[in-house]
Write a protein that binds this DNA or RNA. Structure first.
Lengths: 226, 226
DNA sequence: TGAGCACATTCGTAGGATGATTGGGTCATC
DNA sequence: GATGACCCAATCATCCTACGAATGTGCTCA
């Protein structure tokens, strides 16, 4: 049996929740200035230190902005941190699916936008990957470098950042659950073909090959895996 | 001429950077316990309050975990918050491009996985959108509901969360820069066709229609827009 | 009019004090 | 020996007061 915890969390967490909800409900509009810390401290019934920790968290979540000597202002009504927290709780299969779609779209764009430097980086990483041979640790490192270079060749920084996050999240989960051995590993040839498609700017082929690269891993995962 | 700022930010920000780098460099392994607050306070040369604010931020970034009466432990070596911060700084065009690719992939999946409830929600939202007529505020609200329902029909929570974030980020930026009037608005017919494709599980058509829906907006944006 | 300065306001940092929680050790009991 | 109650040190959580730093405002004075 599972008993719910009595306390909903620390005072700081409660304060974060109150402030977040007030902002999401539009209690303060974007650009508007919040009451001063002392005022918030009194309203929330906690000390100024506690308010400061809560505000600092929301600042890093992109909701607030503080300016010393001026005040605290609302920057956004959506909590970016909460978004990632929910994503991190998603199932491995779903995260891997997102990673694959990000990489596939990146491959398409890369085929259209790649320049000489992009090709150079991808080629180098792939060569190193081949040289790694049975050195698993080295092969994984250069494999990662190749995929990162591929996504970077899309010349979309937002996409690159997002891919890095999902690739890292997926890798870490796989390592922690020790699923490595159960998952199929894409061959060097598949990688070479993908790079070749991008080199000759064959966007459609790059899409197909990229998707095929990790699709087996996705199918090896049941919906039951965390 | 532009002079670099002397200080990289407040002491708390500096402390966050130090701790983050130490963790990323593996100074403490995952699961390992950090020194106590007093120790960190001395090592970083800042007060304990400052350390606490920094640690609290990293806890919400998913890197650390604190347990009262026990200690502070490393949970991950990548800072999820930093990822979103970089994404939020990306150009509007890049974010819109990511939003479009997320929605397009979602449309494909939705065509395969949608159930009766999904179709019901999408149909309802689209009908309301039509009824809204010249009521811009209402039309936007139901348009948003339709797109959210469409992505939800992919039955991938991670994808849904991600889409919500980008849709929100794009919408907010557009509103703040008052670009609304310059951007083309997809017609009701285009939406109806997309829903029809999803209803008859025509994945390929859903992909094409979804991409076509927002592609004009993307092209209306130059790389120069923030 | 305009430049510069004084000042109140506000966030930033420091240090100490106390409470709450946890984990481990001790010890009596069976 | 196993078990449970209890104590205790370590650690985070919260609060308080004080002072520093930065900002915006309004006033002074040339």
């Amino acid at each position: 049996m599972h008993l719910a915890r009595i306390s909903k969390g620390s005072l700081v967490e409660t304060a974060i929740g109150s402030l977040r909800q007030a902002i999401e409900n539009g209690h303060w509009a974007i650009g508007e200035r919040l009451p001063v810390e002392a005022q918030l401290s009194e309203s929330l019934g906690v000390s100024r230190n506690t308010v400061r920790e809560a505000v600092r968290v929301l600042v890093h979540a992109g909701m607030l902005e503080t300016r010393q000597g001026d005040g605290t202002y609302v920057r956004a009504t959506k909590d970016a941190g909460e978004t990632l927290r929910r994503i991190s709780r998603a199932q491995l299969r779903d995260k891997l699916e997102v990673r694959i779609m990000l990489e596939t779209e990146a491959a398409k764009l890369a085929a259209e936008r790649r320049d000489a430097r992009d090709l150079e980086r991808m080629t180098l990483a792939l060569d190193e990957r081949a040289k790694a041979g049975d050195d698993v640790e080295s092969r994984i490192r250069h494999d990662h470098a190749f995929h990162t270079a591929l996504v970077a060749a899309s010349h979309n920084p937002a996409l690159s950042e997002l891919y890095d996050y999902f690739a890292h999240a997926v890798t870490q989960t796989i390592e922690l659950t020790e699923l490595d051995s159960e998952l199929p590993e894409p061959s060097q040839e598949d990688h070479e073909l993908l790079l070749a498609a991008i080199r000759r700017q064959d966007s459609a082929k790059a899409e197909t090959l990229s998707r095929a690269l990790l699709q087996p891993s996705l199918q090896a995962l049941g919906k039951t895996h965390p």
